[in-house]
Design a binder for these strands. Structure first.
Lengths: 259, 259
DNA sequence: CCAAAAGTGTTGCGGGTACACCCATGG
DNA sequence: CCATGGGTGTACCCGCAACACTTTTGG
């Protein structure tokens, strides 16, 4: 959605290209500075923050749609994406909208009463894990601004997006014990303290160093690179990286991580 | 969908009452004769079996829609229902359909080329656990026949319904360890051997009697009724029933069942 | 030499698994 | 009294949690 022409075409004829009534919203998690971050989008004209989202093209698979929407916002195509829930029950999702308006540039654009965008939407929630440092945030005609927000400082969001986020987070935390994470959240090479800190941040609890390393290494998902990381006036921790063969097997077959 | 008038109205104007492009399909599990059963529907005119399903009304919540669809087929409203996945990626779900026809009674009805029913549909999968003996199967203008099929003898189904069923089953088996089941699958009063057999059937493996009873009783979800069940020429097993207060708490908060 | 962080091994306890004997019932 | 299934207790073992000392580094 780069030009004003595209934008107006979308408002007027979007229902020819996209499936109406159905959207995808993404809870995009990143990790930085020992904080778990969520990507929030400020919608033009709506004067509020929400999760990034979009419509599904008429002939597109759901996974492609979710990947596309994410790529539009973050420029990433290497990420972990998972469908976690469909939202169609809340007050907001049961009724049609009215008087929606958008403000591309500085022009306020009020949607006509019978616009396809006023119809009720049911939203498929996906969550994504992405590598913070690789993300290149990109706004467009709908999204005025994108920011990474600490998961503990999320404001009141538009629509039912707070509920979505809370579902996403709960789901992600449960999945943590059954699928490997980290490949999409950490730099290529990382230390044990770093990955431990990632788990601690996501789970919001302290873990025992010795037990954590034993358990993680037993899974054999990461391997010693024989390099170390200089961290100044302290002992240099070893650098590890994921064994992609085993990591992908683990993604497929699941793991049991008892931390 | 009881009368022919309703039926034709649905074919022609359904998109005024229902959200197009989006359906709900239900994997309905029942338990009988030590077999896990799945409810299959024979669709008129399509000459094949599939999972029961339906459309969502324009102003209806998803859960209401799923409950309604189930009630139409089974007359039940007391059941466990869980959303497990959205299907929109398979070959079948990416393209529009063509030449759909239905055969209510003995009249073949070929849908017009531009019918709303020819559009691509994305389907939300729900699975349900129901008490076999309470079910009253009800056919209609679309469903010619409904049968309970042993889970191990499911034929090739229409569309992507085999894939759906396999997802539902996997999901249900995983959930087994985290949410209580049985209330919707067993008669009101049941014996320990009966509920053990239920778990064995669903998980498709033998469990140790002594350990099973210890673990289950420790959860305190079931209580002794002080009655016994006569089973003929053998010792009469005790009858238990669910403690609904604790059962509902467990539904909300989850359990850890290590069997 | 010191402060701060990383690396590593051992022990004890609890829970899960494996296992066997007695009891009730009806024929 | 016998065949069949139901009910129950114990011992062992493994795995998790708890825990402390040594090593490295740069200032």
């Amino acid at each position: 959605m780069k030009t004003e022409k595209e934008f107006h075409d979308f408002l007027e004829n979007g229902d020819k290209y996209y499936i109406p009534n159905l959207t995808i919203d993404c809870a995009i998690f990143g990790y930085h500075g020992k904080e778990l971050k969520i990507l929030l989008a400020k919608w033009r004209g709506l004067d509020g923050w929400g999760l990034p989202g979009g419509f599904i093209k008429k002939k597109e698979t759901l996974s492609n749609a979710a990947t596309r929407i994410l790529k539009e916002k973050t420029s990433l195509d290497k990420l972990y994406l998972k469908q976690f829930h469909v939202f169609g029950d809340s007050e907001f999702r049961r009724k049609e909208k009215e008087g929606l308006s958008f403000s591309p540039g500085n022009n306020r654009y009020l949607l006509p009463k019978n616009s396809w965008l006023h119809e009720r939407t049911i939203s498929i929630g996906y969550y994504a894990l992405v590598e913070y440092s690789q993300v290149n945030l990109m706004t467009d005609y709908f999204i005025e601004e994108l920011v990474w927000q600490d998961i503990n400082q999320v404001p009141k969001l538009l629509f039912d997006h707070n509920e979505m986020l809370s579902y996403a987070l709960r789901n992600m935390r449960i999945n943590l014990y059954h699928i490997p994470i980290g490949y999409n959240l950490l730099p290529n090479k990382f230390t044990l303290p770093e990955i431990q800190s990632l788990y601690e941040t996501i789970l919001d609890k302290k873990l025992d160093r010795r037990n954590f390393s034993k358990k993680l290494l037993k899974l054999e998902l990461i391997k010693d690179t024989k390099e170390v990381k200089k961290i100044g006036q302290h002992r240099s921790p070893k650098l590890y990286q994921f064994d992609m063969k085993k990591y992908n097997e683990a993604l497929k077959n699941g793991i049991v991580l008892a931390i």
